[in-house]
Amino acid sequence: MNNMTYGNFKHETTGTLMKKGFIALQDTYTAEKAISHLRKNVQGKTNIHYLYILNSDSQLIGVLSIRELLGASDDEWITHIMKTDIISFPTDLDQEEAAKVFRDKDLVSIPVVNRTNQLIGVIHVEEILDVIQQEADEDIRKLSASGKEIDFRTNPFVAAWRRLPWLVLLLFIGLISGGIIERFEATLEAVVALAFFMPMIAGMTGNTGTQSLAVVVRGLVSEDITFNKSMKLLFRELIVGIIIGITCAIVIAIIAFVWRGSLTLGLVVGSSLLATLIIGTLAGTVIPLLLYKFKVDPAVASGPLITTINDILSLLIYFGIATIFISKLM
Rank of each mutant, 00 (worst) to 15 (best):
residue 7 G to K: 12
residue 306 I to K: 13
residue 221 V to K: 06
residue 9 F to A: 09
residue 324 I to Y: 15
residue 261 G to T: 13
residue 184 F to H: 11
residue 262 S to H: 15
residue 195 A to E: 09
residue 34 A to V: 02
residue 266 G to R: 14
residue 11 H to W: 10
residue 78 I to N: 03
residue 200 M to Q: 14
residue 22 F to Q: 05
residue 154 T to P: 05
residue 266 G to C: 08
residue 65 S to A: 06
residue 230 S to V: 11
residue 21 G to D: 14
residue 172 F to Y: 15
residue 73 S to R: 11
residue 136 A to R: 07
residue 88 S to E: 05
residue 253 A to H: 08
residue 120 I to E: 00
residue 82 M to P: 00
residue 54 L to T: 03
residue 320 G to D: 09
residue 306 I to S: 11
residue 76 E to G: 09
residue 47 N to A: 08
residue 42 V to E: 02
residue 17 L to Q: 12
residue 160 A to Y: 13
residue 276 T to N: 08
residue 90 P to F: 11
residue 306 I to R: 14
residue 53 I to C: 03
residue 316 L to H: 13
residue 98 A to S: 05
residue 139 D to Q: 02
residue 71 G to W: 04
residue 103 R to F: 03
residue 213 L to A: 07
residue 271 S to R: 09
residue 17 L to D: 09
residue 100 K to R: 15
residue 170 L to P: 14
residue 145 A to P: 08
residue 132 I to E: 03
residue 123 I to C: 01
residue 316 L to I: 15
residue 158 V to W: 06
residue 70 L to M: 13
residue 187 T to A: 12
residue 277 L to V: 08
residue 57 D to G: 00
residue 78 I to E: 00
residue 310 N to Y: 07
residue 53 I to F: 00
residue 284 G to T: 07
residue 254 I to C: 08
residue 247 T to I: 10
residue 255 I to T: 05
residue 199 P to D: 06
residue 102 F to K: 05
residue 50 Y to S: 03
residue 77 W to Y: 11
residue 208 T to E: 04
residue 244 I to K: 02
residue 54 L to K: 09
residue 126 E to M: 02
residue 113 V to W: 00
residue 68 E to S: 14
residue 292 Y to I: 05
residue 76 E to Y: 04
residue 138 E to G: 06
residue 148 K to H: 13
residue 169 L to N: 10
residue 229 K to S: 06
residue 132 I to C: 01
residue 218 R to E: 01
residue 299 A to R: 06
residue 3 N to E: 10
residue 280 G to I: 08
residue 323 T to F: 10
residue 239 I to E: 02
residue 137 D to I: 06
residue 284 G to W: 06
residue 313 L to V: 15
residue 88 S to Y: 11
residue 202 A to V: 15
residue 210 T to P: 01
residue 297 D to R: 04
residue 318 Y to D: 01
residue 133 Q to P: 00
residue 12 E to T: 12
residue 62 G to Q: 02
residue 193 A to E: 15
residue 99 A to E: 03
